[in-house]
Computed example of a mutant assay.
Amino acid sequence: MPLHYHRIQHDDDPALALIRDLYESAFPEHERRDWASFLTLINDPRMHVDVILDAEQALGFLIWWKLNDYCFIEHFAISERVRGAGYGSEVIKHFLKESKGKVLLEVEPPGTPDADRRITFYERLGFVIVNIDYRQPSYVEKGLSYPMYLLQSGAESETEIAKLIPVIHSAVYFI
């Protein structure tokens, strides 16, 4: 059976239980919202939370925002028990097709095995690193930020991508 997706549209959706543990274990505290804050955003029409399922078994999730004519992937995680089985590539390929390819996301700069692996994963899927000095605002401590790389598909100019950064920071990080 091919993968299918369950869109969470309410903060009482039972599928949220499938996401919480993975969300909190896959991302360090400064790269994620506290759970109560996360739940308040589910009603924002720009934010989409998709649970990735295979035969009703949750494999992961994709949290993304529709911002202007771009999709911004805020968080994407596949369960450790099935990592390396090709599900991540399948999900991102499907997402690129559905979003018409105009996608942005953040990754940690290279230098650790996990960061290097993530960058290579996205580059294999056609993403390119945007040559812009970029910092991700902290979800936890106002005023703090962390160096990250922006990756994009859609071959937009860096000038166009730079115009989207304030949109991302305003919508996603509330700054």
Rank of each mutant, 00 (worst) to 15 (best):
residue 154 G to M: 10
residue 87 Y to W: 00
residue 138 S to L: 06
residue 54 D to E: 15
residue 94 H to F: 04
residue 109 P to I: 05
residue 11 D to S: 14
residue 92 I to K: 10
residue 125 L to A: 06
residue 100 K to M: 09
residue 28 P to M: 07
residue 8 I to M: 05
residue 49 V to E: 05
residue 139 Y to Q: 12
residue 72 F to S: 08
residue 92 I to Y: 09
residue 68 N to E: 15
residue 65 W to N: 02
residue 34 D to W: 01
residue 140 V to Q: 15
residue 94 H to C: 07
residue 138 S to I: 09
residue 88 G to H: 05
residue 133 D to T: 15
residue 5 Y to P: 07
residue 6 H to I: 08
residue 1 M to I: 02
residue 107 V to G: 01
residue 88 G to A: 11
residue 166 P to S: 13
residue 24 E to K: 01
residue 84 G to N: 10
residue 1 M to Y: 03
residue 123 E to F: 07
residue 157 S to L: 11
residue 159 T to E: 15
residue 79 S to G: 11
residue 45 P to K: 05
residue 118 R to D: 01
residue 23 Y to I: 01
residue 141 E to Q: 14
residue 55 A to H: 14
residue 124 R to K: 15
residue 143 G to V: 13
residue 173 Y to H: 15
residue 102 K to V: 04
residue 146 Y to H: 15
residue 29 E to L: 13
residue 163 K to M: 14
residue 167 V to P: 07
residue 90 E to D: 14
residue 155 A to C: 10
residue 143 G to L: 13
residue 44 D to G: 07
residue 8 I to D: 06
residue 70 Y to S: 09
residue 46 R to E: 14
residue 147 P to Y: 09
residue 126 G to Y: 04
residue 17 A to D: 14
residue 103 V to K: 00
residue 127 F to L: 06
residue 63 I to T: 12
residue 107 V to D: 00
residue 91 V to K: 11
residue 64 W to K: 11
residue 134 Y to M: 08
residue 116 D to T: 03
residue 116 D to I: 04
residue 119 I to P: 00
residue 108 E to F: 00
residue 39 L to C: 10
residue 5 Y to M: 08
residue 134 Y to I: 09
residue 139 Y to P: 12
residue 17 A to H: 12
residue 126 G to F: 02
residue 5 Y to F: 15
residue 152 Q to D: 12
residue 86 G to R: 06
residue 64 W to H: 15
residue 151 L to A: 08
residue 44 D to L: 06
residue 136 Q to S: 06
residue 125 L to C: 08
residue 36 A to Y: 08
residue 104 L to R: 04
residue 74 E to C: 04
residue 107 V to I: 13
residue 167 V to I: 15
residue 143 G to K: 13
residue 43 N to L: 08
residue 87 Y to P: 00
residue 162 A to E: 13
residue 133 D to H: 14
residue 110 P to C: 03
residue 168 I to V: 15
residue 83 R to I: 05
residue 78 I to A: 05
residue 151 L to P: 07
